[in-house]
Nucleic acid binder design. Structure first.
Lengths: 227, 227
DNA sequence: TTTTAAAAGATAGTAATACTATCATAAATA
DNA sequence: TATTTATGATAGTATTACTATCTTTTAAAA
């Protein structure tokens, strides 16, 4: 049996649904390739069009601008990850075990998921690390938020926050700790690979040490009240 | 007695030292105003020139491009903050008290410092929150790092890391915890003001709660081994 | 005080980016 | 077969991100 995973995307993000057409799926696929390769600043619709073999105007029929396209693929990732988390932590009753699993999923380089044909999750993970925060660190964040563009990110944070509360219902900052875990899983990875003197991990792609750091950080806080 | 605080900047950041001339100081001053007001994406040398009453070419004589200018003002901020920290924690012998003071300084909206005439630290703090990570979240991070552009940030992280080690010499992740404190002081502030559902603070500019969160987070980790 | 060098102003120009518009054609659907 | 829908091809505009050149002003050195 072959399953196809579909993530329901916010309709305001695009002019034409990219999942519905070959060109649309190519836009997503090649955006991920190009942004992963050259970074978001160097990414233009012209280059994307050339890469796909279509024209600039063709891209604009799907996305108003590259910022919305970035939000789209990042939001897609959060949606996908939330599903992964719910799937992989299903049936785990111990919230501490569950939270550890979540931290591991957040901080581990993703492998390409065969159930999503046009998305390379491994590259997407790299994009989320380097470009993820640029989705909201803008002056339009308020407007974008009104459109619910950050809902997948918020939903994931809420899920993580709830697991934290399950670990310790008296813990006072579950949401802030959740965002801290998520952001730090990525920032420590970026620092480790690019500015290693900012971390305690060395430059040897040792994600396992990031996980140890996050576990230590989270559980000393969360477990502090009786456990 | 009137003191003038001078921060030694990396010479590779500029073509002509902006501190040495009226125009140069105006470039810094108005960059801060414009970036704080419209965000870094909307900031152009053309607009900056118009704001100052000079020409685009005039700006290019000082800075190669707007990214280097951003790095400049952010680096300036880290340099300034490190001085503030060393000044304000001077004579504090208890490392826990010291670390608490540092967290407070990191997470509190800065007031304009009269000893620096052309820099508005209060606006600069807002820029560091919203745009700070864009200085290094690029594909050129490696090149920029070779030029030592991030030294002021690294130095500050090292200072914080050392205080953490003073609190508990056995703590394993002083550097990563230091960057976590610094980044989260800003991210939680940004979330509180722009995506409040991601935090536990509500939207009422309650920096004090961020400080409580960070203290809780840091000291449960750091104090865990005997204190 | 004069000379001269450095900084700033004025203007022009180019390549790339970020779009919008139009018209023709191909493919899918009614 | 008619007709809607998606794509392709082409053109054009405003803005951005620069570089170049020449003149005038300012400031420092002789």
């Amino acid at each position: 049996m072959k399953l196809q995973l579909q993530i329901k995307m916010n309709e305001d993000l695009f002019l034409r649904n990219p999942e519905h057409t070959v060109l649309g799926r190519n836009i997503i696929k090649h955006s991920i390739l190009l942004i992963a390769q050259n970074g978001f600043e160097a990414f233009t619709f012209k280059k994307l069009a050339e890469d796909i073999g279509t024209t600039e105007a063709g891209i604009y029929r799907y996305f108003e601008n590259k910022h919305l396209l970035l939000i789209y693929i990042i939001a897609w990732y959060w949606g996908w990850l939330e599903f992964q988390i719910s799937f992989q932590t299903n049936n785990i009753t111990n919230p501490v075990v569950k939270l550890k699993k979540v931290i591991k999923l957040l901080a581990t380089t993703v492998e390409d998921d065969a159930t999503t044909s046009y998305v390379n999750e491994s590259l997407l993970y790299q994009i989320v690390i380097s470009e993820g925060s640029k989705a909201y660190l803008t002056k339009q964040v308020g407007e974008d938020n009104k459109h619910q563009f950050f809902k997948p990110y918020k939903d994931l944070c809420a899920v993580v926050g709830d697991i934290i509360l399950d670990c310790n219902p008296k813990y006072k900052y579950p949401k802030s700790l959740a965002t801290t875990i998520i952001e730090m899983a990525h920032f420590q990875n970026f620092f480790m690979n690019n500015l290693p003197s900012l971390t305690d991990f060395g430059k040897n792609k040792t994600e396992s040490k990031i996980i140890l750091f996050l576990n230590e950080l989270v559980f000393s806080s969360v477990k502090k009240a009786k456990w």
